[in-house]
Write a protein that binds this DNA or RNA. Structure first.
Lengths: 356, 356
DNA sequence: AGTTGCAATGAGATCGATCTCAACAATAAG
DNA sequence: CTTATTGTTGAGATCGATCTCATTGCAACT
């Protein structure tokens, strides 16, 4: 039999036999490495084409010790930012000739762990991770990763010396607060999302992921810098379930001295504010001002169009891929952290109180 | 040296040496296949744990001829439906213990081709594809796929005998039209998106992807069944660029006898209608009625909330994975086509003309 | 004691490609 | 005519795990 079992893909041995040369020569001809007689090469290429030969990259990878595959683990899910991040990472990797093995784990820490393990077993060359929490990340330590490089996306974790790409959320919230202040607002509220919180609370929970932590921190600092005393009732923390968020917004609006403007710490929180406002008959940009995070495709279409702090997701994803590839190509280099600027997109959801 | 080169992952040979048994026995102990003495197994497991052994699935796959990896190729991009589809496929696969290698190709046919090739080279066990076009799909033929099974998602292609999972778009549009008619509308327009069209036109282009084709077809049939003569000016075809869509909506609204209600053939078209309406000062659900496709997270939050034909994306994705796995597990079975029902989510964007 | 049966293990082939090294032929140089 | 050089090729090892098959040791039975 010229070719192995029926239905099986032709191997390099089949091509070699068909062309009447050895496997070694065939390999040289196909991979364009080493010297091969021009006529021989032509014959081999012809045989390969005729048999419909498709190289088995698994075998090559095993020999080479590299798979040209990256692992992408996204813990949080259901937000357009992360969908976009996922796509952008895949696209950026493709342009560098890397494929991406993707897992999303919906904030299940155990799934996150096993995902890392599965990816290591599949011999990815490196990992891009958006973890659900900053605690208990020891499974991303050097030892547990068997030396494979990681880059965190939209999260940082300086303590472990892990590379990361984030946006400047601190400045982002600052911009939002200052924009509101410039339009005459002083009573500015903040609604903060945080995983694994079922209800809502005014207490700042420990272990906020860095992204959210920085947004909260930026708020407090900007308010302090402006000399505004924050009424504790203006700030609420809630889980990411719709009801939890809705309730938090209600609590804020029911306060004795409610804020005139709200900052929503992510797109889901913006939606929650919009939902509550709609239900209460409050007109955004008039009765209640709002600045959101993440420029989702619908933000500009709302009436009024939503002012948002936009994150450069695509650039972040590309930076993460570049960062990871840099680590892969130069394993001895120190992991680096990249922080990209956010951009305040001013639209119509913050009312100008100064002219009123 | 007990262990191979520094930095390299320990192999089964390392574990075998450490435990003082052969590779064969180690393999048996670790994979729980075949008989091994209980004490020996314990010793092997202990050694594996001590060395931090992570199996090299590449090697196993090469031997087994199966990688437990599916390929997902999504041509269209930038719509929340496909983001959700991507996530759902990954999630469904994970529950079946399969990983997913993802590519998105942004409607570039060449990229689509090379993606298929790359996935075959990486020895995926099967492919789920959302192609950008129904023409020129010969690269998805049995021969070109080397016998690997495929399932099309949100597209069908009965001519080639390829398995597929789609939604009942025909009935979906029908439901939309009938809903509008029930509320007194007869002048119903349709705005259709189609790839690689730069401007907009009233002519029905050839080679519409099945999804869109069925939506158009459903519209014509429902109108015919209701005995309504369609003014050609009510139907416009456009590309998926924002300007192209915007222009198409404008053309429809500028018609001599403009429709009172519009059906948008996908979420981007809905956004286009909303944009134009906003610019013209038309209030949706009052001056102009609208039904969209795909229940994006923002649809319900709009004022008025958008009535949409909802596709069961998550079920479709799961069905696609199931369908593909069925083909993988039973290669001789005939490829099947699955059609899932859509659901009309009635909200407030269609005005009731009958009471006016 | 001799034979059979069974449990436990190891030696070696195998998957498909790559890479090292040696072999060989043809040509050039001495 | 011999030796060195260059160009071209093939044999065989290798990557890491699995699987087949043969071997060993020990207990049980006649």
């Amino acid at each position: 039999m010229t070719q192995s079992a029926k239905g099986a893909l032709p191997t390099i041995t089949d091509v070699a036999n068909h062309a009447g040369v050895s496997r070694a020569t065939t390999s040289r001809a196909l991979s364009n490495y080493g010297v091969v007689n021009a006529a021989t090469r032509a014959r081999v290429l012809e045989s390969a084409a005729e048999l419909g030969y498709v190289p088995n990259v698994l075998a090559r990878s095993m020999r080479a010790g590299s798979t040209h595959t990256l692992g992408l683990i996204i813990a949080e899910v259901g937000l357009s930012v992360f969908d976009l991040a996922m796509r952008s990472v895949i696209e950026s990797a493709r342009l560098e000739d890397y494929q991406v093995l993707v897992t999303n784990t919906n904030e299940d820490l155990r799934a996150e762990r096993t995902s890392v393990r599965v990816m290591l077993e599949k011999q990815v060359d490196g990992l891009i991770v958006v973890p659900s929490s900053v605690d208990e990340l020891e499974f991303l330590s050097k030892a547990d990763l068997k030396g494979k490089p990681v880059t965190l996306l939209d999260r940082s974790l300086d303590s472990l010396g892990i590379a990361s790409v984030t946006a400047d959320n601190l400045q982002g919230t600052r911009d939002a607060v200052e924009h509101m202040q410039a339009l005459g607002h002083t009573k500015i509220g903040l609604i903060v999302v945080t995983a694994n919180l079922s209800g809502e609370t005014g207490e700042r929970p420990a272990g906020l992921i860095t992204t959210i932590h920085d947004r909260v921190e930026g708020y407090y600092r900007a308010m302090a810098d402006a000399g505004i005393d924050i009424d504790p009732a203006w700030v609420r923390y809630c889980g990411d379930a719709d009801e939890s968020a809705t309730q938090a917004v209600n609590t804020i609006l029911d306060a004795e001295n409610p804020p005139t403007a709200l900052i929503a710490s992510n797109a889901n929180m913006s939606l929650a504010v919009l939902r509550v406002a709609k239900k209460r008959g409050l007109v955004i940009g008039d009765d209640l001002s709002l600045v959101g995070f993440d420029d989702a495709p619908w933000a500009a279409v709302l009436t009024p169009a939503l002012t948002v702090v936009d994150l450069p997701i695509e650039q972040m994803a590309k930076a993460a891929v570049d960062n990871l590839l840099a680590q892969i190509r130069n394993p001895d280099a120190e992991p680096t952290s990249v922080v990209l600027p956010t951009r305040l997109l001013i639209r119509d959801s913050v009312r100008d109180l100064s002219t009123a």
